[in-house]
C-alpha cells in the first residue's frame, strides 16, 4: 500500500539532528502515538541522525506515514554516502563504538523500534530503516 504521507529532509549539519527530532516528534504526535512511543521513536531518530551527520558525512532522512494490515506506523530511512560500516553484525552489538559515543547507538536504537534494517558496505554508504507501529 502506498504511504499516506511521505517526504524527505537533509541531515547534514548538527542543527539537522535537532530538526530531525522535532520533525519526528510532530509526525508521531499528529498520528496519535502514545507519549512513550513518541519518545522512543524521537530518541531513535536522534541517534540515527547523529550517525548520519558524524559518521556518514551527511545524508537524508526520508519519512513515511504508513498504514497496512489495519495498523498505522511511521517508517524512517536514514541514508548517507559515507564510508559505510565494514562489519554490520559487530556494529549492532552493545558496546561497539567508534569512540565518540557510548557504544549504544545502533543496538540501543534497535530496541526502541519495532522494525530495524541496516544495509551498509564499505565505501558505499549506509542506509538504516526503522519502523514504529502505533
Amino acid at each position: 500500500m502506498p504511504p499516506i504521507r511521505t517526504d524527505w529532509v537533509e541531515v547534514r549539519a548538527e542543527s539537522d539532528i535537532v530538526h530531525a527530532r522535532q520533525l519526528v516528534r510532530r509526525l508521531s504526535s499528529e498520528m496519535g502515538f502514545r507519549l512513550v512511543d513518541q519518545t522512543k521513536l524521537v530518541t531513535a531518530a536522534s541517534e540515527l541522525a547523529r550517525n548520519t551527520v558524524v559518521h556518514g558525512g551527511g545524508g537524508r532522512l526520508s519519512w513515511e506515514c504508513i498504514a497496512e494490515e489495519g495498523r498505522e506506523g511511521i517508517r524512517l530511512t536514514f541514508h548517507d554516502c559515507g564510508p559505510g560500516i565494514a562489519d554490520v553484525q559487530l556494529a549492532l552489538k552493545d558496546g561497539w563504538s567508534t569512540g565518540k559515543g557510548l557504544g549504544m547507538g545502533l543496538s540501543g536504537t534497535k530496541r526502541l523500534v519495532n522494525e530495524f534494517e541496516i544495509e551498509s558496505r564499505p565505501g558505499r554508504g549506509t542506509r538504516v530503516t526503522i519502523t514504529k507501529w502505533k
Binding site: L35, V36, Q38, T39, K40, T43, E47, D94, L102, M104, S107, G108, T109, R111, L112
Partner: peptide
C-alpha cells in the same frame, strides 16, 4: 526526568 524519558533511556541501554 520525565517518565517516558526514563523508560526510553533504559531501553536504549543507558
Amino acid at each position: 526526568m520525565r517518565p517516558a524519558v526514563a523508560i526510553t533511556l533504559v531501553e536504549l541501554g543507558l
